[in-house]
Each structure stands twice: as C-alpha cells, then as structure tokens.
C-alpha cells in the first residue's frame, strides 16, 4: 500500500456569479504515489478547475485537500506557494518556456523560489535535461526547438523541483501525432520509474495509456477505470 499523494474530501469549487457556477461539485479523490491518472471530459466539464485545485493554483470553496501529506485549507498564500513549488510539477499545453532564456536556464527556474543556490539548480537542471535526452540542446533557445523538444524541456523543468506529483494540462495538445506519441512514451517510462502523474487530456488514445481514468462531466468526477497493474 503506497502513500496517497493527493486526497480530496468533498472538495468543491463554486464561482459566485451571478448566477453561481458549480465548476466542481463535492468530490472525493485519492491519487496514490506512482499513479498515472488521465482526467478526461468535454470542454467546460471542470477538468481545468480540478487541475487548478490539485496544483494549488486555486482554492476550493468547500471540502478539504491534503497534498503530499499536508492539509492545505488553512495555509497562507505564501505557504501554498511554497508547497506548490516543492510538491507539484506542471506541464502545460503551451509549454510556458521563457523564450529569451536557454534550455538550461528555463529548467533551472525550478527551485528558484525554494531558496536553492543557483549552482544546485543548474546541476539539477542538467540532470533532468539529460533524463529527457536534450543534453545536446542545453544552450539552445526555445525558439530553435521543435514542439516535442519544447515539451520535453517543460517536463524537465517540472521534474527539476523533485515534486511529489506531475500535473499535466493537455501535454500533447500542441503536438502532432508523432510527437504526441513520444511524449506519451516518455510519461509511461517516467511512471514506470515511479513518478506520479495526473494528466488532463482530450486525447482518448493518450487517456487509454494511463493506468487510471477519471471522467469529468458537469463538475462531477467519476472513476471510469481503476488503476491497473
């Protein structure tokens, strides 16, 4: 039995409106360490709301959320930011790389707000860049990279803070099918190595590769497929 990385207990998010919008209805959800979960649902179903709550980018209007063993409902914004920086790695659809910084500098941003010395951040960044196979492009600017390479840089940055969970928002949304396949394989291999991954996607093929599938519809989360070995 592994430790839960994410525990949602009756977590809800309602936007006040008017009229009030129940973006996420009271939800119970547990993500264990080593899980690879795909969150699937149509646009406006509440996927992104769920991901924002899981990543501490937004606060729930109800329920309690324990991330990496830490109850979050009473944390100050500064504490939330600290927990977010240390426990969550984000991978975005549009990569969110700083275009004027090199690959190494982009990845070394992780840990910046965790008071880590630059030398340590650079060493970690180089290690993560090596893991995603981009060492030859260490000094390249993002503009000179392909979409797949950019996403790998983003993944390296997400891993560099050594997070408890990787939250991915449509990680293949801006990639062609071949590059998407590469990223999926990368996620699978990462998961096999022990990384916990929660991934929001529209891509059914990608969702099928995940070990768990969570369907979101009208703010309700359903466990469509339990974890498989």
């Amino acid at each position: 039995m592994t430790d839960p990385v994410i525990e949602l207990r009756q977590v809800a998010r309602t936007y006040p409106g008017p009229p009030p919008v129940h973006a996420l209805r009271p939800t119970d959800l547990t993500i264990q360490a080593g899980d690879f979960a795909a969150v699937v649902g149509p646009s406006g179903s509440g996927k992104s709301t769920l991901l924002n709550l899981l990543g501490l980018l937004d606060r729930p209007t109800g329920g309690s959320y324990i991330l990496d063993g830490q109850p979050t409902e009473r944390l100050s914004p500064a504490q939330l930011a600290g927990l977010r920086g240390r426990s969550v790695g984000f991978v975005f659809q549009s990569f969110h790389l700083l275009n004027h910084r090199t690959v190494l500098d982009n990845v070394a941003l992780a840990g910046l707000y965790d008071h880590r010395p630059r030398s340590e951040r650079l060493a970690r960044a180089a290690e993560m860049i090596d893991l995603v196979g981009l060492t030859p492009r260490l000094g390249a600017l993002p503009a000179t990279l392909s979409g797949g390479e950019r996403q790998r840089v983003a993944i390296a940055r997400a891993l560099a803070s050594r997070p408890a969970v990787l939250l991915c928002d449509e990680p293949t949304g801006n990639l062609d099918s071949a590059r998407s396949q590469e990223i999926v394989e990368l996620f699978e291999s990462m998961n096999q190595a022990g990384f916990t991954i929660v991934m929001v996607t529209h891509d059914e093929a990608l969702a099928a590769r995940a070990r768990r599938r969570l369907d979101v519809l009208d703010g309700q989360v359903h466990e469509a497929r339990a974890a498989r070995p």
Partner: peptide, 19 residues
C-alpha cells in the same frame, strides 16, 4: 529511466513558505 533516488527518499514538502 533510472528510478531517481530522491523519489525513494521523498519527504513530505511541509508548509514552509517559499523563499
């Protein structure tokens, strides 16, 4: 992937504010 050693040694992050 080598299973990163830090993944085995992962400690809860705690609630320290970011710096």
């Amino acid at each position: 992937w080598p299973r990163p050693q830090w993944l085995h040694r992962h400690q809860p992050a705690g609630a320290a504010p970011s710096r």
